[in-house]
Amino acid sequence: MGHDIDFYWNASVAFHGHACPGLAMGCRMAVDAAALLGVDERCGDEEGVCIAETDACGLDAIQAVWGCTMGKGNLLLKPRGKQAFTFYRRGAPEGLRLYWCAPRSDERTREERITHYLRGPAEELYRATRVAVPAPDEARVSPSLVCTRCGERTAEPMVRLLEGQPYCLDCFADPSRILR
């Protein structure tokens, strides 16, 4: 990876559909993580992994820069509501967690924030921490079961049993009264 922020910014905007500060955050962290981890290309097909703690705009930049996707099993969502991403290569003993800690400045315009996020000093924008990461299993294709109520095939890990019959999450009457 050439770590050319302009190239990856343009790719991120094309993927996301518009330029915004959140996308700039993700792009900056993805490009810097690659440089800090010594990644020379888009990490192969499934080798590079990202654990995202948000589902906001920056996540699209991660996909554009690192090539991670949920479908390949190398983009994992750990919803915490934080602008934080952990990057690593499968088989590596540690990765890098980047947490965006830059204060949101109301004094800067949207365009000025984007420029600052892409080119400002890293120490003002995010905190990087080396972390041990358990590599996930290779992407797995689960068998499907037919939901008793709606009749739609559903991946086995997402099925719940009620009186021995499989139900998808939308049809399952959860007796715990916890909304998911």
Score class of each variant (00 low, 15 high):
W100Q: 04
V133I: 07
V133Q: 06
D170K: 02
D40L: 07
R127D: 13
Q165S: 05
G44V: 02
S142C: 07
R80V: 03
F172S: 00
A61V: 08
R80N: 03
V141H: 12
A135Y: 01
G58T: 03
Q63M: 11
C57S: 14
E123W: 02
T86K: 00
W66N: 10
G91A: 01
G44F: 01
Y88G: 09
R97D: 07
C101V: 12
R127F: 07
Q63K: 15
T129R: 13
L161G: 10
C168H: 01
C57I: 07
Y99K: 09
A61H: 05
P143L: 15
E123C: 04
E163Q: 11
A173H: 10
A64Y: 05
R149V: 01
K82Q: 14
A135V: 04
E46P: 04
C50H: 07
D40P: 02
D174G: 03
T109E: 01
A102Q: 10
D170M: 09
V146K: 04
A135S: 11
L59E: 15
G81L: 03
R89I: 13
V49K: 08
E94V: 08
S144N: 15
A64F: 03
E111K: 10
W66M: 12
E152P: 00
C57M: 11
M70E: 15
A64N: 02
G71I: 04
D45P: 11
G58N: 09
G58P: 09
N74Q: 05
G44W: 02
C68R: 09
Y117R: 05
A122Y: 05
E123V: 08
D174L: 04
A52K: 04
D60L: 08
G71P: 01
A173C: 11
F87T: 09
V131Y: 07
A155F: 05
W100M: 04
T69F: 04
Q63P: 02
A64G: 06
W100E: 03
L77Y: 13
Y167I: 00
P157I: 07
R80Y: 08
T129Q: 13
L59P: 05
T69W: 05
L118E: 01
R113L: 13
A64I: 03
V141L: 15
Q63G: 14
A102K: 12
Q83E: 15
D60V: 02
A139T: 13
P79V: 08
R140K: 15
R113C: 13
T69Y: 06
Q165M: 08
A155K: 09
P166M: 03
A52F: 04
D170F: 03
L169F: 14
E111N: 06
D174R: 06
L125W: 09
R153K: 13
D55G: 13
M158P: 03
D170C: 05
R108Q: 15
T129C: 10
F85Q: 12
Y99A: 15
I51T: 05
A92R: 10
V49Q: 06
A52R: 02
A132F: 11
P134F: 08
Y126K: 01
Y167Q: 00
F172N: 00
C68E: 04
T129H: 07
I51S: 02
D45A: 14
P143E: 15
D174P: 03
G95H: 05
G48T: 07
S144C: 12
D40V: 08
A155I: 08
